[in-house]
Design a protein around this nucleic acid. Structure first.
Lengths: 153, 153
DNA sequence: GTCGCTGCAAATTATTTGCAGCGTA
DNA sequence: TACGCTGCAAATAATTTGCAGCGAC
């Protein structure tokens, strides 16, 4: 589950370069937080990373971990698993369907697509487990937000 | 954005039937909460539903709305948009990829699939807006959890 | 009468923020 | 010196839970 040392180092370099380019300080804390995330494939949460980073920097605080992760995400250096954590939204439509989500205003639209429903998972997924359902989220700008942006820009 | 009266009534019947079958009381509050969700296509959150249901049942409390939604979801009468709201998990892998998620233990695995990356969105999505990215989550049971279940069941 | 459902208030959990000190450019 | 970064503690915000009364079967 852990990446090879070379791969981690490669990611560290990309990270350092991104910091330089974006004018973000690659502090000791941030480096360690990023490294800990880059080392693993288990998609850890903030608390888990905190626990691991603390082994190397015992004085680090959980807030710093949260702050760093948010910063990294904003800069596109890391990403989060799944949706962009707002409040939970519900849907009475229980027929098989997928969602279009506007990343600007949060609008959610349903759409149907048999091809996606029956999409055969790649072989590598078969090794992970058995797939029961396919959830697809298409993300972009809704019509309204596109117009707003056009006017604004 | 609102469903036709007939469609809402159809959903109400399905709901009532599901309650009967599953031994869940279809109380006044629950009916109104479900109806309010069934009426709309905007995928509202708990607070929004609370605000609307309160017009009909002014004394209802937000907790009841939360409780009802959770119950409905457990019984498969409704679903939630996006991921199953645990803590946010992060990923240092910024190459284009998708996720397999074990719904039992939460394991997340990466996989790559060019076909999904380039999947042409159906025409109905084009009417909603412009798609910038595709997020696919395959949900199921990981190997380990499959074995555990086999032994247990 | 029993038992589940509800409203109220308080608790929990994840995450964010204000502030003051510190280190580095 | 100036400014961003950090740790600490407190604040938020969403959601859950304990409890007691009420109502339906």
């Amino acid at each position: 589950m852990a990446l090879s040392k070379e791969n981690v180092e490669k990611r560290m370099e990309v990270f350092a370069e991104a910091c330089r380019r974006q004018g973000v300080k690659a502090t000791h804390q941030r480096m360690e937080i990023y490294r800990e995330l880059a080392r693993t494939e288990e998609h850890p949460d903030a608390e888990t990373l905190y626990g691991r980073v603390r082994k190397r920097i015992p004085s680090i605080s959980l807030d710093t971990v949260y702050r760093a992760l948010r910063l990294f995400e904003e800069r596109g250096v890391i990403s989060r698993v799944g949706s962009t954590r707002e409040r939970t939204r519900f849907d009475a439509n229980t027929t098989r369907h997928h969602h279009f989500v506007c990343t600007r205003c949060g609008l959610v639209g349903d759409f149907y697509c048999a091809e996606l429903d029956h999409f055969p998972p790649p072989a590598e997924v078969g090794a992970m487990g058995r797939v029961d359902s396919v959830y697809v989220e298409l993300r972009g700008f809704c019509r309204t937000c596109q117009q707003k942006r056009r006017k604004a820009g």
